[in-house]
Design a protein around this nucleic acid. Structure first.
Length: 358
DNA sequence: AATACGGGGCT
DNA sequence: AGCCCAGTATT
């Protein structure tokens, strides 16, 4: 039995029943693929359901406000995916009159659609023979063929794509793409793969050479950047539940999401030091306020940064004093899209008393 | 080719 | 604590 047939056979027995596998609609498949970028199926599934309910077809998405799209993305991370999707939807309206394309060339020209997503959507919605190379494919094929090269290299990527194209011969390209990915997600997993009941164990070069644990090649990880962020939580005595938030602009994390205004410091700072901080002064220019009081510090771990976030409550002396323009007031009932860290604070920070335990 | 970009789950 | 996830855009 050939490797390709073994994979398809395994897939048909073990495939998970997922909503985007019950359609050939390129729009629905595209939505699922973008949500699943760097995101596990279990984590993305509820977002997919809510997203498709809010935007059943492409024109619904194209006509939405960016803030609404970001709101549905809230908590999922990599928010540029949501912004790019919204832009891509508008591109499809202009270029194709609202009909989502299903060919690789048209798809990859869309915002936020790279090689992987274009190949995935094209193969699954129209059976175009374009191979996907994602983390699963890299792992499965590197082990199966005992490939030691760095998948970050262009040459290795091309080789993996070629191997996928060979596997596709005589099979539906979309089904084979999904079969290898599902195999990587459920059977040939990163750590402790289930080689004991693997249908490809007799074909697996890595298993024969005892290289399963070290393949695929991994570049040594860099240590993430440490940052100390001090958030200014303004409180208006006349309506103490309101939040004063600022939209993250420029570049950097959480672009277009809303957070408390913040001041960064090289090390953790005390309440007095915050008062003396020049950025703090600039923010509070022309505002009368009480002295800052530390409410709580939270440790927030991201892939590339380790944040120590300290939240300082600052009471306004006058209920409606003029505040910097970039600060907007929000009532708790209708908050804008915010990163997880803000929600963590709002859950825990409602209590009282300073606590500085990273 | 290298880096930035979130958040969560599993070992 | 470290790894890695159905990656893409930017540098």
């Amino acid at each position: 039995m050939s490797v390709s047939s073994l994979l398809i056979g395994w897939y048909r027995r073990h495939r998970r029943d997922l909503p985007w596998r019950q359609t050939r609609d390129p729009y629905a498949i595209w939505v699922s693929e973008v949500i699943l970028q760097q995101t596990r199926v279990e984590q993305g599934l509820p977002y997919y359901q809510r997203f498709m309910q809010a935007f059943p077809c492409l024109s619904d998405l194209a006509g939405a406000r960016t803030s609404e799209v970001l709101g549905l993305w809230q908590g999922l991370g990599y928010y540029s995916r949501a912004r790019n999707m919204h832009q891509a939807a508008m591109q499809v309206m202009e270029r194709y009159g609202g009909a989502m394309p299903s060919d690789y060339a048209s798809l990859i020209a869309l915002k936020g659609v790279g090689e992987y997503t274009a190949a995935a959507v094209a193969s699954m919605s129209s059976s175009e023979a374009v191979p996907v190379v994602d983390g699963n494919v890299i792992r499965v094929l590197a082990r199966l063929h005992g490939l030691e090269d760095d998948p970050g290299r262009a040459g290795m990527r091309r080789r993996l794509a070629e191997l996928m194209k060979e596997l596709m011969l005589g099979h539906d390209p979309g089904e084979m793409n999904q079969a290898v990915m599902e195999f990587g997600a459920l059977q040939c997993v990163p750590r402790a793969p289930r080689c004991g009941d693997c249908p490809l164990s007799h074909h697996c070069k890595a298993l024969a050479l005892d290289r399963v644990e070290v393949l695929p090649f991994r570049r040594p990880a860099k240590t993430p950047r440490e940052r100390h962020i001090n958030y200014i939580v303004l409180t208006d005595p006349s309506s103490p539940r309101d939040l004063f938030l600022r939209k993250q602009d420029h570049q950097g994390i959480w672009k277009d999401l809303w957070t408390f205004p913040m001041v960064e410091s090289p090390v953790a700072i005390q309440e007095e030091e915050l008062s003396a901080n020049p950025d703090f002064h600039r923010l509070m220019q022309g505002v009368e306020y009480h002295r800052p009081s530390l409410v709580l510090c939270l440790r927030h771990i991201l892939s590339h940064q380790r944040l120590e976030a300290c939240f300082f409550s600052v009471g306004l002396k006058h209920p409606s004093s003029t505040l910097p323009q970039e600060l907007l007031r929000f009532s708790p009932g209708k908050l804008p899209p915010m990163p997880r860290l803000m929600h963590r604070y709002l859950e825990k920070g409602t209590g009282q008393g300073p606590a500085r335990k990273p």
